[in-house]
């Protein structure tokens, strides 16, 4: 395709171009040398975990946050025990705002000495409640403040659960 003279010219030009010293940014040389001098550069290639550990650390932090749930601090329920001494009772139920005043949802268990007890989880808040003895008799909790309003003619008590942060 080319004449011989043209070929020789082209080869000559290529050789001249290749022999001409390339102009390289002086700062590039310094950057390359500093990268080579960094101890991590070699380690990264040898230890695959070196690239992974930031992700593992982030996952650990995320897991800890999810378990601790700081956004729900003060709203998580705590277990509360309610007790009533009623030696003559055949059944006692704990009824209140926390169980929609449904006696089937918190029956109390008899213990020794006529003691009736139950444990329920309560989130922070203020709850009215009472004990229903034998399904007919309402009793307030002698160990708790009495409820202020008593329009229904039977006593109730009040329990106030404070948040953990308060």
């Amino acid at each position: 395709m080319f004449e011989r003279q043209d070929e020789e010219d082209i080869v000559e030009r290529v050789i001249r171009e290749l022999r001409r010293p390339a102009s390289i940014d002086r700062a590039l040389d310094a950057r390359v040398m500093s990268e080579i001098a960094r101890p991590e550069t070699g380690l990264v290639a040898r230890r695959p975990f070196a690239r992974v550990w930031p992700w593992l650390a982030a996952a650990a932090v995320l897991t800890a946050v999810v378990i601790a749930r700081p956004w729900s601090r003060g709203t998580r329920p705590d277990a509360f025990q309610f007790v009533l001494v009623a030696p003559q009772a055949a059944s006692v139920a704990l009824v209140g705002d926390f169980n929609d005043w449904d006696p089937t949802r918190a029956p109390m268990r008899a213990a020794r000495g006529g003691l009736w007890a139950t444990v329920i989880p309560l989130a922070p808040g203020r709850y009215r409640y009472a004990f229903l003895v034998n399904g007919v008799e309402w009793r307030a909790d002698p160990g708790a403040p009495a409820a202020r309003d008593d329009e229904f003619g039977t006593p109730s008590s009040v329990v106030t659960v404070a948040g953990r942060g308060s």
């Binding site: 009824v95 929609d100 005043w101 449904d102 006696p103 009215r128 309402w138 229904f152 003619g153 039977t154």
Partner: peptide, 8 residues
Amino acid sequence: LEGAMKNA
């Protein structure tokens, strides 16, 4: 509900 439970 308290009133209903207490037959008010």
